[in-house]
Design a protein around this nucleic acid. Structure first.
Lengths: 344, 344
DNA sequence: TTGTAAGCGTTATCAA
DNA sequence: TTGATAACGCTTACAA
């Protein structure tokens, strides 16, 4: 009655037919006279009838809604992922419920609970930085609940994942620095408990090795918070010793790179002449800073699309014998701008 | 049965009591023996019982869900608004359904439809750039459906709005440029069909007037798309004539400002010595570009909080005699950085 | 071609 | 202190 919303009952009463007839007429079921069909549809239109999705969910035990759990929307990367998710979901008649965890495990757990209460059909997850115990996800998987992890791959068996080839991305970035003649390449790394940090570091190390350069442990510095001010401090420290300092930086992401660039310029060093810099993620601002920042672009939109496709597959294919889909790993793209370009 | 989720029925059967008893026991209703209560809760716990929110929605005609309609998550400003919305919604036991319109009117209309189908309790709207006809919102309001507009205020009677004092923000920004000795201040304006563009332009004009400066119509240029490349082009054009060009720019937002800055630097002009620049919105990147960009900061998080509070009020207070809440207008804050600072 | 009735999970009302 | 029943809006056997 809320909103004075018309229901199937109202239509039935007005037309002196049963609710089942109305229901069938509206969905073009066979075996309904054209006359009735016409009358029903006309009245439905006039009353501005709109099916009650809640009743449908209850009836069908299916809500046509998927949940998305992400750390934070403000991260440019995640907001592009969301766009990809929405695109595919809507195209397939699904709604999207979004929850941010703000990188908190407790939020993550409670989101899962509310989403389940709301009978969502499946969930896309990029887990929080705090999450090291994955049992809340394991429980879902044991119940065969459709779940796809993206970007951050959990330490669990039999998960479905859409990730980015971070190893390769880091490798390419580092190789590029080498090709520009930089030889003392430092790495500002991400939080050590995220697998992506580890993989990026490995790519970096491998590229050094392949180039015959020896890595310097003290030139790999973790940036736990990933803030600009943090990396500013770290870079200041790193470049303190004038006689023994890096000539390039590969940063775990663009904000970290930007903080370092500010420090480097403050020290009177020129980018890219004295120091080359490459970031990660291709944030919106990266092309606008001075000099424009070279970076590794992750296909956020495509990750969202792929993850959603996989999830919808899983939702559709829950019959016995259905095979869990294969993981997807997407390629990054090295975007070369001025900050790392000193060979014409 | 999906997920093997336990229902009240399962508990009732197992314990040989009626479903009503179980329901009451779980909610600590009076008139249930402690013994029964204990047994019910224990079993519920053991079965991992979780109330079915869909059934509740249907029963109560209330979903404890609010919808948010925004143009695009990737806009830093909107993503901070979302955080504010989520914060307040979750604290009050509400879920958030998010839909992006990508600035498309058709998407906006269809979102409203699906949200209504899903029996959401209210909606927060920042309408699309394409929207000039507001009848789809009007229809809702006529039905007394709770709706709060934020940031973009529609041309409709009796709406509830949470906005930013854009007039004042623009005025402050322009005054600041004047105080720094700039006298030929151009304005890169926003899309002319958005009220915020108009108000910012008015604030700019008033500040010029108060300073005794005469505005130049040809120095007010609209940037319809708001992209960096667009404003680069426009700025190039604006500064073409060496003998008659602006000495400062007030831009409709930071991306526009950033594009202009690139053009200005390209022309060999120094910021802030030759040309002062102030943007709008305090995007994440604004502090990282060179020189750091002065800007007008909008309280996105607070807008989200305020709008959600108003909406929840309206949802709660739908009895007759309830007064529509007052609009809220939040103040901006001028963030002065190097791009506009030439007086020490 | 149409109607009847049961059921999805929950709660409110009335009766016991 | 507890139970039976109806109802929220819709679909779907089954019956007519």
């Amino acid at each position: 009655m809320k909103l004075g919303q018309a229901t199937i009952k109202d239509i039935a009463k007005e037309l002196n037919v049963s609710t089942s007839t109305v229901s069938r007429a509206l969905k073009d079921y066979p075996g309904i006279s054209d006359e009735t069909k016409r009358k029903v549809k006309e009245l439905a239109d006039r009353l501005n009838y709109r099916p009650n999705a809640v009743a449908l969910s209850l009836r069908k035990s299916k809500s046509f809604t998927i949940g998305v759990i992400i750390p934070e929307v403000v991260h440019f990367f995640f907001s592009t992922v969301i766009s990809g998710v929405e695109e595919v979901a809507h195209a397939n008649g699904y709604n999207v419920i979004l929850v941010q965890t703000n990188e908190k495990l407790s939020r993550e757990k409670s989101s899962i609970e509310t989403m389940l209460s709301n009978q969502i059909d499946g969930v896309l997850v990029s887990y929080s930085r705090e999450t090291t115990d994955f049992s809340h996800f394991k429980k879902l998987m044991d119940l065969d609940f459709p779940i796809v992890f993206f970007d951050r791959k959990p330490d669990l068996e039999n998960t479905v994942n859409v990730t980015v080839n971070d190893y390769q991305g880091a490798y390419d970035a580092t190789r590029h620095l080498v090709s520009q003649g930089y030889v003392k390449i430092a790495h500002l790394a991400g939080p050590s408990n995220l697998a992506i940090s580890k993989r990026r570091k490995e790519g970096y190390l491998k590229a050094l090795e392949d180039a015959g350069l020896s890595g310097r442990p003290d030139w790999i510095v973790e940036c736990p918070s990933g803030s600009e001010s943090e990396s500013y401090q770290i870079a200041m420290e790193l470049f303190k010793d004038k006689t023994d300092r890096p000539d390039a930086i590969f940063a775990h992401h663009d904000i970290v790179a930007a903080g370092a660039m500010i420090a480097i310029k403050k020290l009177g060093l020129k980018i890219p002449e004295d120091v080359g810099v490459v970031g990660y993620s291709n944030w919106q601002f990266s092309s606008m800073i001075d000099p424009p920042l070279s970076t590794v672009s992750q296909p956020g939109f495509s990750i969202g699309e792929n993850a959603t496709h996989l999830l919808l597959d899983m939702i559709a294919g829950k019959e016995p014998g259905y095979q869990r889909p294969q993981d997807v790993m997407l390629d990054t793209e090295l975007v070369i701008r001025k900050s790392s370009l000193r060979v014409p």
